[in-house]
Deep mutational scan, measured.
Amino acid sequence: MSGNGNAAATAEENSPKMRVIRVGTRKSQLARIQTDSVVATLKASYPGLQFEIIAMSTTGDKILDTALSKIGEKSLFTKELEHALEKNEVDLVVHSLKDLPTVLPPGFTIGAICKRENPHDAVVFHPKFVGKTLETLPEKSVVGTSSLRRAAQLQRKFPHLEFRSIRGNLNTRLRKLDEQQEFSAIILATAGLQRMGWHNRVGQILHPEECMYAVGQGALGVEVRAKDQDILDLVGVLHDPETLLRCIAERAFLRHLEGGCSVPVAVHTAMKDGQLYLTGGVWSLDGSDSIQETMQATIHVPAQHEDGPEDDPQLVGITARNIPRGPQLAAQNLGISLANLLLSKGAKNILDVARQLNDAH
């Protein structure tokens, strides 16, 4: 009898209710805020589980004197976190989706994509230029951005401005803007500013005609071990179906173009009346040469937790077992079709030249 009692006690200790789920994140304040929001949602869904947040620095956090596009290494903000995932030191990792490459290392998958916040870019102005827009900034004003995508589009749109690289986390960039006289304004992701509670610093939100956004911008991705079915089931509740389908289309477009950090590629997606609209573009580094096109596809946005595919093969690095396969494939095909259209119009040449120029500098 006593033996059975011990077995029952052991089973209770090993039951999922007692389990601590370890969540990996970057150390920056924004990353911690984003991770806290994901953990809060998981806690609400699984009140019996405990969650421990483990923060670590990544290569991208450490190399702050070089433009991201020049470092010449993929997975700048993800490699150390993936290493911890691989060694079973954490069970899942919360990322900004735009930091996750469209091809993940073997053994990993994006197990959830959370509801997207505003994906557009924002302009934050130096205190002396508050009330201005990019259009009304004085001639030769210097605007800071760490992104080739932003610089290429904005140089084309605002030729009277000069664009220079600015690195560091959000706090560091804002301090550089406010305390030094080098920059009249800087460009940042609206979602990051909003998550930090800095709505009052948003001086201008850039519309798609001015600057399309990065693939996955404004959404959070939760990376897990691809074979860890328990954790895949656990994080599945975080999937937002519309965000998922938009981001599958965007990531398929980028992957098929073979774009990345070192080339200016941008997108804009919208879901309306059962249609998914995808606009994508590529630019030369100075913005003088560009190709942009829009395509659409009829896609039914499923309700969360309709029964999805059981075999769960990944699409552009994403596993969404609780979302039907048909809409996911339709979104992926839309991204591939748009990429093929741009490639047929000469996108590869623009991107190759951009890559060579970026590598040469």
Rank of each mutant, 00 (worst) to 15 (best):
G317A: 01
M196W: 05
L64M: 08
I248T: 05
Q217D: 01
L68A: 11
P127H: 05
P264M: 01
E209Q: 15
G168F: 01
R150Y: 01
L343G: 10
Q217L: 01
I186K: 03
T78N: 10
D233H: 13
N349Y: 06
P105H: 11
T41P: 06
Q34N: 09
V130M: 09
D307I: 01
E250Q: 09
E73P: 07
K176W: 10
D228L: 03
R116A: 08
L97H: 01
R251E: 03
K62G: 15
S165I: 09
R150W: 04
R32N: 13
L49H: 10
Q304M: 06
L30F: 01
A44W: 10
L334H: 01
V90F: 05
L342W: 03
E306V: 14
Q204G: 07
G335P: 01
Q180H: 12
K27R: 15
R175Q: 13
Q229K: 08
L329W: 05
K157V: 10
N349R: 14
I248W: 05
L285T: 10
A40R: 07
T25L: 01
L193H: 04
E223L: 10
F129H: 11
E310K: 09
C247F: 06
P119R: 04
D352V: 08
G60W: 07
I323G: 04
V265D: 01
L30E: 01
A151W: 11
L244D: 01
Q296V: 12
F77A: 04
R26A: 04
N322E: 13
A303E: 10
Q304N: 15
L92S: 04
L351H: 11
T58N: 11
F158V: 05
S37T: 14
L76Q: 10
L64F: 09
F158P: 01
I110Y: 04
T269E: 01
G72T: 09
K27V: 14
T172P: 04
K348H: 15
L341R: 08
L81G: 07
A122R: 01
N349D: 12
E179H: 09
L76P: 10
G281S: 15
K87P: 01
F77S: 04
I318L: 05
S28I: 01
L285I: 09
T136Y: 11
C211V: 12
Y277G: 04
L174D: 01
G192E: 05
E210Q: 05
D289C: 04
A219F: 01
T66H: 08
T41G: 08
L188Y: 01
R164I: 09
H268M: 15
I21H: 07
A122P: 05
H120R: 13
G218R: 01
V93A: 11
R255G: 14
Q332L: 08
P241Y: 01
G144A: 11
D178C: 14
Q180L: 12
L30S: 01
V94E: 03
V103E: 09
V265P: 05
Q229E: 13
L276Y: 13
K70S: 07
E52T: 11
K140D: 13
G216H: 01
A31M: 01
H305Y: 15
S284T: 15
C247M: 04
I21F: 09
S344N: 14
A151E: 01
N88H: 10
I323E: 06
E89N: 13
H160W: 10
A249Q: 01
Q29L: 11
V267G: 06
V103L: 08
G308L: 11
K62E: 08
L42T: 04
D178H: 12
V202A: 10
A249N: 01
S337C: 11
K27M: 11
L193W: 01
A151C: 11
L64I: 11
D359V: 03
M196H: 12
E86Q: 12
E209T: 03
R201V: 10
I53A: 06
V103R: 11
D312F: 05
T41S: 13
V267I: 05
F51A: 07
T145N: 04
A266P: 01
L76G: 09
A360G: 14
A297Y: 04
Q34T: 05
G317S: 04
Q50C: 01
E162A: 07
S141F: 08
A214R: 01
R149K: 03
I71L: 12
D99M: 04
R116N: 04
D311H: 14
L85C: 11
D91T: 03
G60R: 05
G326W: 10
I166A: 08
V39L: 09
S96T: 01
G60V: 11
T172C: 08
V353A: 09
V38E: 04
P159H: 13
R325L: 15
A226P: 07
Q328S: 15
G280N: 01
S146F: 10
S344H: 15
S344D: 15
K140F: 10
E179R: 09
P47A: 06
S146D: 05
L278Y: 01
L341H: 06
T58E: 10
P138L: 10
A189D: 01
D91H: 04
A354P: 14
I187G: 06
T41W: 08
V103T: 15
K157S: 11
S165K: 05
V23T: 03
P119K: 04
Q217W: 01
L161S: 06
E86Y: 15
D233G: 07
D240W: 01
D289I: 15
I33G: 07
A152W: 10
I166Y: 07
F77P: 01
F163N: 14
G72P: 13
K74D: 05
L68Q: 06
I350R: 07
